[in-house]
Design a protein around this nucleic acid. Structure first.
Lengths: 207, 207
DNA sequence: CCCTATAGGCGTACGGCATACGCTTACGAT
DNA sequence: ATCGTAAGCGTATGCCGTACGCCTATAGGG
């Protein structure tokens, strides 16, 4: 019988995401989001307990757009894992500002679990036992999380790499850096993933 | 001829680190650090341009304690890489609060470059060409960065994993989670690293 | 059609933050 | 003894999240 809500959680998340995409993570504040949807600052607190909950809303909203359909079973297991991983990377990379937010709230996100489910299934099919599966799954997650951040923070082809290339007192590192411009962002990401998958494959093929 | 400074940068970094270790990252503020060293807040600005520079000071101070001596050349290349990686993990894990800080400022740290130098050398010795070396180095960095965060944020043996294990609608994932308590933090980290190293080894051995 | 209980939405205020600016003061060189 | 320089500090500004209390729109019951 009381007054009905005039907003959905989704509208709230959308507004907050709009603020982030426009002004960056530093621009995200309760005041900014309130202004975005034309409500008073304190009005938001009828929908969320605190800023953290608003952030959680945003990352759930984004991660929910990741396709969690198991890939075609005709493909080999490692290709299927690559497909799953690329789907996540694609969604996250389209909102670079909120990478730190996703990292911080990842473990409370149901969406990331739904994404992990087919991954666990594929690893099981590949013949990994329970313990191997735990380790493989966590390493994949670790690699994805780390690689996305590296990519976001300092692209391999960027200025930072050039600085390294010019450091004479670090001969091996700078020599390596000089090869970096040959490697695109996609090649880097897929290359590293391929290394990890080859390692995981060793657990099954070598038996 | 003017009045001399009464503080070194190192004292400043030490004070800030003490604040973080005591009160967490949230407790780090210019006011708190000023109080820690018995100076006024604005006095700090004679030493750093802004808060970010203070943070950089702290992480450099910590990362400088990582041993960058190349490991004994008698050991196989993959063991030497593991030694280098474990050294970094050990230092970072002893200051868990500042993991996010290290992530954010990592690319501006000279210490991390000095740590990468022997890594690049070992990979070269292992027979990887320039392009392979770029990818291997970046994947190792990605894995380390990601794994340390995962470890810090939600230990495999923790409550979060139990929650997953109880989710009936995610059969494969929860079945996998039920094996997690068998895997210690060290086993998890080394296991994932071993997978990656095996993949890297495939670039050289298989030739 | 009106009444009323309920929850929605808002304004104000507080304590904390980083930091710009300008003053005072200690000090080394002369 | 004096003086130029930079050290260190006090104040003030404009952000931030959010606690608290008020007013009011609304749906259901009469």
């Amino acid at each position: 019988m009381p007054r009905p809500r005039s907003l959905t959680s989704d509208q709230l998340a959308t507004a907050a995401l709009a603020v982030i995409d426009r002004d960056g993570l530093a621009g995200l504040s309760m005041r900014a989001v309130a202004q975005e949807i034309g409500m008073s600052t304190m009005g938001l607190y009828r929908y969320v307990d605190d800023r953290g909950e608003l952030e959680q809303l945003v990352i759930d909203r984004v991660l929910d757009t990741v396709d969690t359909m198991p890939p075609d079973k005709g493909r080999p297991w490692y290709e299927r894992i690559e497909i799953m991983v690329e789907r996540l990377r694609h969604v996250v990379s389209s909102h670079p500002w909120l990478v730190p937010l996703i990292i911080a709230h990842r473990h409370r996100s149901v969406a990331i679990m739904r994404w992990s489910e087919p991954l666990a299934a594929i690893l099981a099919e590949a013949g990994l036992d329970g313990r191997e599966r735990v380790i493989a799954l966590r390493s994949l997650l670790a690699y994805v999380v780390g690689a996305i951040q590296l990519e976001q923070l300092g692209p391999l082809a960027g200025a930072g790499t050039q600085v390294i290339a010019d450091r004479a007192e670090l001969p091996y590192l700078s020599e390596t850096a000089r090869h970096a411009h040959d490697v695109t962002t996609d090649e880097e990401f897929r290359g590293g993933l391929a290394l990890l998958l080859r390692g995981i494959g060793g657990s099954t093929d070598a038996r």
